Computed example of a mutant assay.
Amino acid sequence: MNNRLEKYKGFCTEEYLMGPNSLQLLNEMMNKVSIKENSRILDLGAGKGITSLFLANETNSLVYAAELWINPTVNYESFKEWGVADKVIPIKVDANELPFAEGYFDVMVCIDAFHYFAGKKNFFEEKILPFLKKDGLAIIAMPGLKKELSDNYPDLMVKWFEEDYDELNKFHCRKWWLELLDNYEEYEIVEEFDLDCFNEAWEDWFNCGHEFGKKDKEFFMKGLGEYLSFIGLVIKKK
């Protein structure tokens, strides 16, 4: 871990992680693009709030910790404990129905969640982009595939997803996402890459003590990681 991440190593536990270490992913994205101090940030899919804590502390900004599945009161108690309750606002939202004013946010951050809801044509333009200011940024890191498998998934992946093809079909390669996000009249993609911290993020998950992390490690030992990547996108609104 670099010095910035070192401060947060206490959150790499089964209590806070919900998958590959979201702080590793967010840190790499923030190494690619800087967020100005005193921004208004939407942390979409904030989980248990550790990415919101990181954003609030490292950018000195106001962060909306937007999450559908974690009770906002639970997150609020965490934010009070962590000393950021004045900088992080917990809120329960569905990404399909964001309850904000248009042009409200300087930045939207989405770590390990975008693929769950955004893989539909024009979703980004209709459901996310309106809430960004002009020149606002969408910073996205999500799991994906090294190359598109064209529905010809290896048995190992099918078993990993427990034959849930609805979830499996949400995993795509970077090229697929770039072709989906092709409305360049409204925005430009200023960064697109596969994240370097793939192994570190997964290792933190394997070692955090969570039973799902232990299960995922078994699949990786059989070669699952050969098919997967983490995709990073930075999109700027025109």
Rank of each mutant, 00 (worst) to 15 (best):
N2W: 03
R4A: 00
E6W: 10
K7R: 14
Y8W: 03
Y8I: 12
K9S: 12
F11T: 10
T13R: 04
Y16D: 07
Y16L: 02
L17W: 05
L17F: 05
G19P: 00
N21Y: 06
S22I: 06
L23K: 01
Q24E: 13
Q24N: 11
L26K: 09
E28F: 13
E28A: 10
E28Q: 07
M29A: 15
K32C: 07
K32F: 05
V33G: 01
V33Y: 08
I35Y: 13
N38K: 14
N38V: 00
L44V: 00
K48P: 00
T51Q: 02
L53N: 01
S61T: 12
A66H: 10
N71A: 02
V74G: 02
Y76S: 04
A85N: 07
V93R: 05
D94M: 04
D94N: 12
E97P: 00
G103R: 04
M108F: 03
M108L: 15
A113V: 06
F117R: 12
K121Q: 11
E126D: 15
E126F: 00
I128P: 01
P130G: 01
L132G: 09
L132E: 04
K133A: 01
G136Q: 07
G136E: 11
P143H: 13
K147D: 07
L149C: 09
D151M: 09
N152A: 15
N152Q: 15
N152G: 03
L156A: 12
K159G: 00
K159N: 12
W160R: 15
E162S: 07
D166G: 14
L168T: 02
L168H: 04
K170F: 10
F171T: 08
H172T: 06
R174F: 06
R174E: 15
K175F: 00
E179P: 07
N183V: 02
N183Y: 03
Y184T: 13
I189D: 06
E192L: 01
F193Q: 03
D196I: 10
N199T: 13
N207P: 02
C208M: 06
H210S: 15
K215D: 09
K217C: 07
F219T: 09
F219H: 10
G223Q: 12
Y227M: 08
Y227I: 14
F230P: 10
G232I: 06
G232N: 06
L233T: 13
V234H: 07
